[in-house]
């Protein structure tokens, strides 16, 4: 699936070789056995990682009874679309999706823009107090998210933003870690390019927008992926920033399906269908940017 190409084609790694280097031909039998064993091990592990998702997809097309009786099978006894029918009729899945989309789009755009803006200022613009601001950003990065649940609820109530899109979105729209990533990246770009632009008379914002930002593409993509995933999958913040069912996102909505009745609930196909559907956008983003995400050495050097 990935096309990860290594420049160094050195086929050596003792004890694991499939293509045995010629100077060790006499070892090949043993190496082949080891290689085969490690393939089997990896295949089993991969199966363990993938199978839950396959079962979930299959389970969402089963009847309630089928899902309970044949939890392991990948092919439903009777194909049933009842779960999906319910999800699109009685369950307000579309409204949840709309809410998730609104939140994710704004948060992602906001993070990419504000984080790079601040990251650029902290790496390139000399201004009094810059070090203090940067120290503040570092300190904020250290604050564990879960500690913010009660504080965020308190401030949203105080500002009258509880149960509003604004309350769900604005607190997430800037991210200290994102600012840090962008600052690091801008520091790796040579200053000379910007200086040329500035000598030509371009203003600070124009230089940033038309010269520096295009060069920051790799970091922007990283930030985009992380922000998208982060806001689409966000749960805790939406638990404390609203309780209006009309503001349910996919995470809180599906959670209400899941946590409703544990154990007694015989509506697994419904829950699994919802879980499958809500995973599609992040899966799509993942597969689009797969090469970038997985080919870590490239990201490490450039980003």
């Amino acid at each position: 699936m990935t096309t990860v190409i290594e420049a160094t084609g050195i086929p050596t790694e003792p004890g694991t070789g499939i293509h045995v280097p010629h100077r060790r031909k006499h070892l090949s039998a043993r190496l082949r056995t080891t290689a085969l064993l490690s393939y089997i091990l990896l295949a089993v592990l991969a199966l363990i990682y993938i199978y839950p998702f396959l079962i979930s997809i299959a389970g969402s097309f089963k009847t309630d009874a089928d899902a309970t009786q044949h939890p392991l099978s990948l092919i439903p006894e009777i194909w049933s679309y009842a779960a999906y029918q319910r999800l699109f009729t009685t369950v307000p899945l579309l409204m949840w999706t709309a809410n998730s989309t609104i939140v994710t789009v704004i948060v992602t755009l906001g993070r990419v823009f504000f984080d790079s803006l601040a990251g650029y200022a902290l790496s390139r613009l000399r201004f009094a107090g810059r070090n203090i601001v940067f120290a503040g950003i570092i300190a904020v990065m250290a604050v564990p998210n879960v500690v913010l649940l009660i504080p965020r609820f308190l401030i949203l109530k105080e500002l009258g933003l509880y149960n509003s899109y604004a309350g769900m979105i604005i607190p997430l729209v800037v991210d200290a870690a994102g600012i840090f990533i962008m600052k690091q990246f801008f520091e790796s770009i040579p200053v000379s390019v910007e200086e040329a632009a500035r000598i030509d008379g371009a203003g600070v914002f124009r230089t940033f927008w038309t010269v520096v930002l295009p060069m920051a593409r790799p970091a922007l993509i990283t930030l985009f992926i992380l922000s998208f995933q982060g806001s689409w999958n966000e749960f805790a913040h939406f638990v404390v920033s609203r309780n209006d069912p009309n503001l349910n996102t996919l995470t809180t909505g599906v959670a209400s399906l899941t946590s409703g009745q544990l154990g007694s609930g015989n509506q697994y196909p419904l829950q699994l269908g919802a879980a499958v559907l809500m995973s599609i956008p992040v899966a799509v983003i993942f597969f689009i940017f797969q090469r970038r995400i997985m080919n870590t050495s490239d990201g490490g050097d450039k980003g």
């Binding site: 699936m1 839950p52 959670a255 992040v282 899966a283 997985m294």
Partner: peptide, 18 residues
């Protein structure tokens, strides 16, 4: 790599439901 990384992409809500 994809197989091992994929669970990290999905939301806690979806994976816990599963």
């Amino acid at each position: 790599r994809t197989a091992f990384y994929f669970p990290s992409v999905t939301s806690s809500v979806a994976i816990t439901t599963i």
